[in-house]
Design a protein around this nucleic acid. Sequence first.
DNA 1: ATCCCGAGGG
DNA 2: CCCTCTGGAT
Length: 208
Amino acid sequence: MTQALQQEILRRLEKHYPRPKTALNHANPFQLLVATILSAQCTDERVNKITAELFRCCPNPAAMAERSEDEIAEYIRSAGLWQAKAKNIKATAALLLKKHDGRVPDTREELMALPGVGRKTANVILSNAFGVPAIAVDTHVQRTANRLGLASSDNPNAVERQLMEVVPESRWSDAHHWLIYHGRQLCRARSPLCGQCFLRDICPSARL
DNA sequence: ATCCCGAGGG
DNA sequence: CCCTCTGGAT
């Protein structure tokens, strides 16, 4: 995998996915955090539907912390892993009030100390809500980066490091979105749509 | 049947 | 490192 080829791939990704297409509200760290916790094993459409209802009654940590786990669970039943998510969302809201003056913290250490927040979620918040350069690596990013030859590891942290080498820092948060959307729309886990992919002529894993 | 925009726990 | 949790999409 030559460096020139990697750069060409990044150029095309940027061209094809010009702006991060997310319905998540970047200006509201708390809602972004909740939506990101919900997004595991769940489609965007479903997360958007759930949060539209949930944030009507619980738009901030104070309101969320007042609800019981069961009440929160009511809203998120249609998402997978709802039991753990309801518990984590409530506990996180309470912890934000208790330790962070009701605000979402802006360091990785503090974020990862919140219930339900791991490195991936922390990186999403850092890069999307606070402008801190970070690349959140989930299964789509991992698979897609590996197929495209931008990384080569089954370890998310290694993939994160490798991507930070290849992608200019100013584009880290964008790269996350490129690979997420590419991974979902074309470079799918099971049946990748290589035939209609704009990278098929230079992708190391392309199968036509 | 199998997999998914993870995290926590053993 | 392995497991479990979950509904929904394919």
